[in-house]
Nucleic acid binder design. Structure first.
Lengths: 138, 138
DNA sequence: CAATTTATTGCAAATTTGTCGCAATTTGTG
DNA sequence: CACAAATTGCGACAAATTTGCAATAAATTG
């Protein structure tokens, strides 16, 4: 069986949840994709999973850390969390809504570590989003 | 005339937009306030500005970088962007829920500038949240 | 500053998004 | 395979957001 699916199953099990057919489909719809709107996910699962179930599953995935929600301009978008992806941040264009993945940046990550430490805070995760105008929209 | 209003007018002019009565009212509703939900803004403008116009204005303000949307829990909230108030970031404790304000950090801000620039991106604002355990809960 | 053009607004209606209850399936378990 | 528990699909709703269009306000022109 494929690795990411095993990983999904593990996380679900840790939270006493089962790996159902619908959950697999929704997971697959998000895998290796750019962040998607809820509508896009619903469409991707058209005929396979009902709208209401997509909402329920996304909410669950979010609670147990499988999915991460990004606020992108007007809409939000969904992507698999760092567990399934490499850790990264996004630039989001306020005009066209495009999201640009930032390459990993050691200097940034180290600075965050240092800041957390300066407050005696034990960092478990973080989220950063830069909003503005992309090249085409400026 | 008051300073922030001048600044608002400037930004609008830069984007060939005019400073109308409604826009002033909506701007005022956001000024010097904690981030608000769309609904709160609509209520604050009750009787002065129509719901639809609030949506249209918020969309405009967002595109030209006057307003920033924050993801808070499942809802989003709106606040004036960094141009109109000093900004800061938060540490949030996963256990007790306490939030700790981080002091402004030049090194971090500069790094973000550099990252945005490296993608030919014009940064209008950014959002950072660090999650983990505070001193007392670790 | 009156006349004209252009952009913005309010209003009502339509569409989209997100929730809920409940009966029918599916899933984990032994 | 059978059973108990969890999940799903299917309307039907409720809330949030968008749209078309006529009325109004703001900018521009002579």
């Amino acid at each position: 069986m494929s690795e990411p699916l095993d990983q999904l199953k593990d996380v679900l099990k840790q939270h006493k949840q089962s790996l159902t057919r619908s959950r697999k489909i929704i997971f697959a719809a998000l895998q290796d994709k750019e962040p998607q709107t809820m509508h896009e996910v619903i469409v991707a699962c058209q005929g396979e999973v009902d709208r209401a179930s997509v909402y329920r599953t996304v909410a669950l995935f979010e609670q147990i850390g499988i999915i991460q929600r990004l606020q992108i301009g007007f809409k939000y978008k969904l992507e698999l969390s760092d567990v399934f992806h490499h850790h990264h941040h996004h630039l989001t264009c306020n005009k066209c809504g495009k999201t640009i993945k930032l390459p990993e940046d050691d200097q940034l990550e180290k600075r965050l570590d240092a800041l957390a430490k300066s407050q005696n805070f034990k960092m478990q995760g973080h989220q950063l989003e830069i909003q503005g105008r992309c090249e085409n929209c400026s």
